[in-house]
């Protein structure tokens, strides 16, 4: 890749007692690409996402976003810069309607919220973009439904809509397909495909079919270390990767429920 990387992790180390969860990790995510991060359970994927998103401070190393050092920046500051994550375990506002969930995220992007007077629920500057996003992810007809009452797959779509509403430059998607049936998963995969080009995506996912069909670049994480980075076909052919990870399974599809 020629362009400057959008996200860079340099020499990232994170330990929990004797356990090294992130081991001198280097990672580059380039603008516009879908970059998948795979690895067996316990490889340190979630810990890495937490550090990139600002929930966990690394012991050492640096995180650069668009050239700026964000290692010490707090979560809202990273979101403001365009570095936004979604959650493996659904994280929404269950008592709000789907529309309000997204409008909340639109509001977060629309500057400070020290606005005490005008009703937010009828403000077209919040509601209209929120509605458009719901339509984009295919939830337009459920706008008035309390998020807590939606089906699991719909809640995952809602999460993505909320993440999009913050106008991210880089989306950290933490297992967007986790716990989904095939049909729901296909809908999300289509949704992610439609985002290609408009957003840079760092995708953490166990579903190998999805990863190999979506990703431009794949990084393989084992014991907190990036053992390989490359195009899908390179990764498939990499003997080290096969040994460490893919080789365990004759049919990669089954890995997702490991």
């Amino acid at each position: 890749m020629s362009a400057k990387p959008l996200l860079q992790a340099r020499g990232l180390i994170k330990t929990f007692g004797a356990l090294v969860a992130t081991n001198n990790l280097n990672l580059e995510v380039h603008p516009g690409e879908i970059h998948a991060l795979i690895g067996p359970n316990g490889a340190g994927k979630s810990t890495l996402v937490a550090q990139l998103a600002g929930e966990l401070p690394p012991n050492s190393g640096r995180i650069l976003f668009d050239g700026a050092d964000v290692t010490a920046a707090d979560i809202p500051a990273r979101v403001a810069a365009g570095l936004v994550r979604s959650f493996q375990i659904t994280s929404i506002f269950p008592q709000f309607s789907a529309l309000t969930n997204v409008a909340m995220a639109v509001q977060a992007r629309a500057g400070h919220s020290f606005r005490f007077w005008k009703a937010a629920g009828t403000d077209p500057r919040l509601v209209d973009p929120a509605m458009a996003l719901l339509d984009q992810v295919g939830l337009g007809s459920l706008a008035g439904t309390p998020a807590g009452e939606m089906a699991y797959g719909e809640q995952r779509q809602l999460e993505i809509a909320m993440a999009l509403a913050t106008r991210p430059r880089l989306l950290l998607l933490d297992e967007p397909l986790a716990g989904m049936g095939r049909e729901d998963a296909l809908a999300i995969i289509e949704l992610l495909r439609s985002l290609r080009g408009s957003y840079t995506i760092l995708l953490i996912e166990h579903d190998m079919d999805a990863v190999f069909s979506l990703a431009d670049t794949i990084t393989v994480l084992v014991y907190g270390k990036a053992i390989a980075t490359g195009r899908p076909d390179e990764i498939r052919a990499n003997p080290e990767v096969q040994q460490a990870y893919l080789g365990q399974e004759a049919h990669p599809r089954e890995v997702q429920h490991a």
Binding site: I75, V79, F96, S113, K118, A120
Partner: peptide, 20 residues
Amino acid sequence: SRFGMVLRGIKENERRMLHI
């Protein structure tokens, strides 16, 4: 208002508020 919505959101799910 927007401010009020932020308050409700914090009560519902503060972690999510940080991440938007």
